[in-house]
């Protein structure tokens, strides 16, 4: 499926989605359509390769979750975004659709404190279990004391 076909297919399927014109194909949807969009990208657009998932902290505007999936056969790349809104830190999990999202979402929970509903094993992945706070949030002070070493 070519990028133009994918663009029109997404526009027809998700009425509220903002679809970009460049490459990779940027799609911004409401958080309610997040898992639905991922399922559509996998089943209909053929994006079977899960590239990455991360988040952006936009301070007052809240968190934004970003994921990129690829259709390696057709050279199609879809960058999916969703704005969770101010104060919201829950999002639908993509792990039931893409197994590769498992550790990415655990890292996202670790660094940004986003709880992914439907994730099978949402624990910290990089920091130890006793860590307090989520360090990549803008509100996290870099010199937070961490006994006994700092």
């Amino acid at each position: 499926m070519s990028p133009d076909d994918a663009r029109s297919a997404i526009g027809a399927r998700f009425s509220g989605a903002e679809v970009g014109t460049g490459t990779p194909l940027m799609v911004t949807v409401a958080p309610g359509h997040w898992a639905e969009l991922a399922g559509f990208a996998k089943e209909t657009l053929g994006c079977c390769f899960f590239s990455f998932l991360t988040a952006v902290d936009w301070k007052e505007q809240g968190l934004e979750v970003v994921a990129k999936v690829d259709n390696l056969d057709d050279g199609l790349a879809v960058m999916m975004k969703t704005r969770l809104g101010p104060g919201v830190s829950t999002c639908a999990s993509l792990t039931p659709i893409y197994r590769g999202a498992n550790w990415m979402e655990r890292e996202c929970w670790d660094m940004f404190g986003i709880r992914f509903d439907g994730h099978p094993d949402l624990r910290r992945i990089l920091l130890e279990d006793t860590w307090e706070g989520h360090p990549l949030l803008k509100s996290y002070a870099v010199d937070t004391p961490h006994p006994p070493y700092r």
């Binding site: 920091l127 360090p135 870099v142 010199d143 937070t144 006994p148 070493y149 700092r150």
Partner: peptide, 13 residues
Amino acid sequence: RHGYHVVKGVDRV
């Protein structure tokens, strides 16, 4: 030194 995860000198350990 200003990272969140780094011990600020091994002489603290």
